[in-house]
Design a protein around this nucleic acid. Structure first.
Length: 522
RNA sequence: GGGCCUGUAGCUUAGUCAGGUAGAGCGCCGGGCUUUUAACCCGGUGGCCGGGGGUUCGAAUCCCCUCAGGCCCGCCA
């Protein structure tokens, strides 16, 4: 059974309608890892619906979280905003300087991410957490937390092993400068928390307004109640012993709620691609990934892995692998059969679950997303055929398509071209035409091979420049120099691209052009 | 110091929660497709399930120990 279906089954036992949730702090550019936070919850939400339950999916944006430090992509002038909620500070412009404030910092990073989510079929109810504070919905939780501050302190200290300072208070007011830092609480008289800031300025915050916030561990527990959340998978950082999940559950109960079960997902690692990794600061954004692969395959990256396993993501070879695996499964899914072993049955259910949950539109047939050509094959054609029409003609001849290409396929070729032209395309998949042959390699040729190549050179110099004539020349050369077709083609690939196999030789030669080919055959 | 995940064929892995003779894909090798695309079709090769011990009629699966890799524990998905 797929993990999302399994979780849905557990939730069914809990009963009632379900609310799955994700939460992300928009402190900077969103990346591919955030997709796992989103999709872990969204897929469980879909599985609940598929299992016949009422279900809602909420994406809570932690817009009330403060700016922690001046990140590399920000100018030093952001120093003044440290400690301010992300919803209340201006977005950076292209140079990292604070903008005019038409768009908040939180929205600036959130908006492109939401667009990417739409493309992969995720339609969350978006909740800006600062608006929940502004609405007063947190007031009840804040009041209860303050009234039970000692118990909450004991819970956090006991479970996390963290010692909370003497001035710790389960509510952080915003000071007169707009920052959450350096404000000390001096008293509470519902609904006002009074405080003094680091300069000795005194004031008070109304807990019914966004004039302060709960510390993370309490905030999380309180929002479970506010939104009726029954399921919120969290990253492994929240999942370790004594982490915020372990404190959140009892705190939520203390506040009078029924907390969700602990579900932890593993992280996505960025791997390989030489210099492309965290060290260069280059990460892969969801939009960027979508410019390379279709949305259902991006979903499949998450759906195919068990929730508690690392995903090693790279935009190179593994993307090929996953994309072709997806195509293969769609084309020939496992079928239910008499006398299937338990294993096969489990694997069938998991696989079909993964395919089902990978669809952009819930409930649509995976076959609708099927392009009928492997990524590997398409990448090759795209590299040797500069015109789309030539790619379609080739695919028609090879029997991949009949007549006009499908819209899915056309989109796929467009994406393939941008992948090939971009920095993420794997070297091992690149077809690189040689400029000249190294002398040592020339010396290693036996006389038969030399004969073949010079014979071929003579024929190619004269023949019509179309694929049929080129193929004929190759076959004739093989015959007259008494080598097998197989060896002949191997030699050609070796001369042209330095490998023993490659894309259809005639197409390759045709695309390289007569002059260049003859130059290499010299 | 506390905790999590992982270790199964050359590679990626399923199977571990509910113990019952190790499955798959890729790769590789061979064959076919009478113009041999890295396409497509068919067949084959390949694993003392990290190591040791225990429980059991029976262990990849449960328990204990151990080795190796990755990760989390202010904020971070």
């Amino acid at each position: 059974m797929h993990w999302a279906d399994y979780t849905a089954k557990i939730l069914q036992e809990r009963g009632g309608s379900q609310v799955s949730a994700s939460g992300i702090t928009p402190s900077g550019e969103f990346h591919i890892g955030h997709l796992r936070e989103i999709l872990s919850a969204e897929m469980i939400h879909r599985a609940c619906i598929d299992a016949g339950m009422e279900s809602d999916y909420v994406f809570i944006v932690d817009s009330m979280d403060p700016l922690r430090r001046v990140y590399d992509f920000l100018s030093p002038s952001y120093e003044q905003f440290i400690g301010h909620p992300l919803a209340y500070i201006p977005a950076p412009d292209d140079n990292g300087n604070p903008g005019k404030g038409e768009v908040s910092y939180a929205e600036h990073f959130l908006n492109p991410f939401l667009q990417a989510l739409e493309k992969i079929g995720v339609k969350p109810r978006v909740v800006m957490n600062h608006e929940t504070y502004e609405s007063g919905a947190f007031a009840r939780g804040i009041d209860t937390a303050i009234m039970n501050r000692d118990e909450i302190r004991n819970l956090i200290e006991g479970i996390s092993g963290r010692e909370l300072g003497e001035n710790w208070f389960p509510y952080n007011p915003i000071g007169p400068d707009g920052s959450l830092d350096g404000v000390r609480v001096t008293g509470y008289e519902k609904p006002f928390v009074s405080w003094v800031d680091s300069n000795g300025l005194e004031g008070r915050s109304d807990i019914r307004k966004a004039e302060g916030k709960l510390p993370w561990r309490i905030d999380w527990a309180a929002r479970w109640i506010i939104h009726g959340i029954t399921c919120e998978p969290a990253g492994k950082d929240h999942g370790s012993a004594g982490g915020s999940f372990d404190t959140g559950i009892p705190i939520c109960k203390l506040l009078g709620g029924n907390p969700p079960d602990k579900i932890v997902y593993e992280w996505i690692q960025l791997k390989g691609m030489g210099p492309m990794s965290s060290s260069t600061g280059l990460t892969v954004g969801p939009m960027e990934a979508l410019s390379l692969v279709p949305p259902e395959i991006l979903r499949y990256v998450i759906a195919r892995s068990k929730i508690n396993r690392h995903i090693e993501f790279d935009t190179g070879p593994s993307l090929f692998h996953i994309a072709d695996e997806y195509e293969r499964l769609v084309a020939s899914p496992l079928e239910e059969e008499e006398g299937m072993s338990k294993r096969q049955a489990v694997s069938l259910a998991t696989q079909s679950g993964a395919l089902r949950l990978s669809q952009v539109v819930r409930g649509s047939d995976p076959l609708d997303s099927f392009a009928g050509v492997s990524f590997r094959h398409l990448s090759m054609l795209a590299q040797i055929k500069s015109l789309d029409q030539d790619v379609w003609r080739s695919l028609e001849r090879s029997g991949h398509i009949e007549g006009e290409p499908s819209p899915q396929l056309m989109e796929r070729l467009a994406r393939m071209r941008s992948w090939i032209d971009g920095p993420h395309f794997p070297d091992e998949s690149k077809i690189e035409i040689r400029v000249e042959l190294p002398i040592e390699e020339k010396k290693g040729l036996d006389s038969k091979s030399v004969n073949f190549l010079s014979d071929l050179s003579g024929r190619l110099a004269k023949c019509d420049w179309d694929e049929d004539s080129i193929v004929k020349s190759i076959k004739n050369s093989c015959e007259s120099s008494e080598i097998t077709n197989r060896d002949g083609f191997k030699l050609i690939y070796w001369v042209l691209i330095g490998k023993s196999s490659g894309p259809k030789a005639s197409s390759l030669i045709y695309e390289i052009g007569r002059i260049n080919v003859l130059g290499l055959l010299e």
